[in-house]
Computed example of a mutant assay.
Amino acid sequence: MPAPRIHIVTLGVSDLPRSREFYEAWGWKASSASNENIVFLKGEAGVLALYGREALAEDALVEDLPCGFSAITLARNATSKEEVDQWFATALTGGARELKTPEEAFWGGYSGYLADPDGHLWEFAFNPYFVFDEHGNLALPD
């Protein structure tokens, strides 16, 4: 059995060019495999894809329901509190909506939440207990 991994996370978006610009402002790089229907953004450990919200619902054979809390967040973990603040400021400048200003967290770290232009939630966090490998990937213990 192959090792479990997530290769692509796809976000349904209402305005593909706007979302592409938003994520490129964070430093994501669009692949040449992108086209007018989908954008593939290359990350170090996977791909973030942007696809029209209605088209994504149609492809999955689900009804496109009004957007509310989806009980899903995406997280980006920093190596310091200052890095969290820097990422947060960059995202806000690019059009993110602040949900929770970065602050000391009950679990001993530092984190804040924001929403992208389509309301997808991102947590930017510093966890002093996390270790990163030589490639910058989170290295959880076995």
Rank of each mutant, 00 (worst) to 15 (best):
A89D: 15
L92A: 10
K29T: 15
V47Y: 02
W107K: 01
S70P: 05
A78L: 02
D64V: 13
S111V: 10
L41P: 04
S111D: 14
P17N: 09
N37I: 01
D59E: 14
Q86P: 00
D59Q: 11
A45N: 11
S70K: 12
E98I: 09
S32L: 13
F40M: 12
E54N: 13
N37P: 00
G12C: 11
I72Q: 08
V39D: 03
D15I: 04
L50F: 01
N35Q: 00
T90C: 11
F22Q: 06
G12V: 09
T73S: 15
A91E: 07
S32A: 14
F69N: 15
A57L: 01
W87A: 07
Q86G: 10
G27N: 00
E54L: 11
K42R: 14
A75G: 14
N35D: 15
G95E: 05
T90R: 13
Y110D: 03
N35R: 00
P17S: 10
A71L: 07
L92D: 06
L48A: 00
V62E: 07
G52P: 06
E21G: 09
A25L: 06
D15P: 05
E36A: 03
G109A: 10
L74G: 03
K81W: 02
P66Y: 10
V39L: 01
F69G: 14
A96D: 02
N35H: 04
V47T: 15
A57N: 04
G12A: 09
A60E: 09
F40L: 15
E63W: 12
P102M: 05
K29V: 15
A60K: 06
E83Q: 15
L92I: 12
S34N: 06
L92Y: 03
I72C: 08
L16I: 11
L16N: 08
L16D: 05
S70H: 10
Y110W: 05
N77D: 09
T73V: 13
A60M: 10
G52A: 09
W107I: 11
P17I: 08
Y110L: 07
